[in-house]
């Protein structure tokens, strides 16, 4: 773990009630880098990234132990306001989930409206900037007042990314952001990840090995709640250290 890590996870455990789903996780997420999380279904990937912005505790029975240091400060400290934390550490989900009754513009502003009042002119600026960052502006600038649900799946996912970006986070967590998208929309999101990486730390959960190999700098392989291997993505996909990683990424039975 280096001092420069944006997020340092130290000895993290997580439970749903009495069911422990993460054990002794240690990991460093670097700033301006993409960290991929891979592993079989049910191994705890979604749970893990939800512990990084305190969303796990919103789930019934969700318990976390251990430390998550964000810029060196423990996010589970009593003094930390989880709502403010989630502005700094934004999240994009597997299924595009724009608020269906809200317009494109309102969707982008949804996160901000929760925390502050905005002047109309400022709001317009935020909307345009976030949509441009999400590589969606050109496609929707004429339809900002149409409902978010009228966009295509790939556009909706970028709208959700714009919504996450509008609050100006430091870190973006993405849980299988492309699993509902076609190859072109996927390529757009991946291209977007490449450009977002210049300003943010990104953590992405993906079931697509090639996607992890393409977009990330570091990759962590989870298995049954444990972090089996965490290393340079190039290393993981050419010569992983652990036999279990090897078997998983090459598609073999354990």
């Amino acid at each position: 773990m280096t001092a420069a890590a944006k997020i340092s996870v130290v000895g993290l455990d997580a439970w749903y009630g009495t069911h422990q789903v993460l054990r002794r996780i240690n990991m460093a997420v670097q700033d301006r880098r993409v960290t991929a999380i891979i592993g079989p279904s049910g191994c705890g990937k979604s749970t893990f990234i939800r512990t990084l912005n305190r969303m796990h505790e919103l789930v019934d029975g969700g318990i976390v132990k251990g430390q998550v240091l964000y810029d060196g400060e423990d996010i589970y400290d009593k003094s930390v306001d989880p709502v403010l934390l989630r502005r700094r550490v934004g999240m994009v989900f597997q299924k595009p989930n724009p608020f269906p009754t809200m317009s494109v513009r309102e969707n982008v502003l949804a996160g901000l409206r929760l925390t502050s009042a905005l002047k109309r002119s400022d709001a317009d600026m935020v909307v345009e900037r976030a949509l441009r960052q999400a590589a969606l502006w050109e496609e929707v600038k004429e339809v900002l007042d149409k409902p978010g649900s009228s966009l295509s799946g790939g556009q909706q996912q970028r709208l959700c990314i714009a919504r996450a970006l509008a609050v100006e986070p430091d870190v973006i967590l993405m849980d299988e952001p492309c699993s509902a998208l076609d190859p072109i929309a996927t390529a757009r999101i991946e291209d977007l990840i490449h450009s977002l990486k210049e300003n943010y730390a990104i953590v992405i959960v993906t079931h697509n090995m090639q996607q992890a190999a393409r977009v990330s700098d570091e990759t962590g392989f989870f298995l049954m709640g444990e972090l089996v291997e965490f290393s340079d993505t190039n290393k993981i996909f050419t010569s992983p250290k652990d036999q279990r990683t090897e078997e998983y990424i090459t598609g073999k039975f354990g």
Binding site: M209, Q210, A213, I236, F237, T238, S239, P240, T245, E246, I249, T250
Partner: peptide, 9 residues
């Protein structure tokens, strides 16, 4: 197949 790791090697 887009092989990786030992398969790729």
């Amino acid at each position: 197949r887009q092989p990786v790791a030992s398969d790729l090697r």
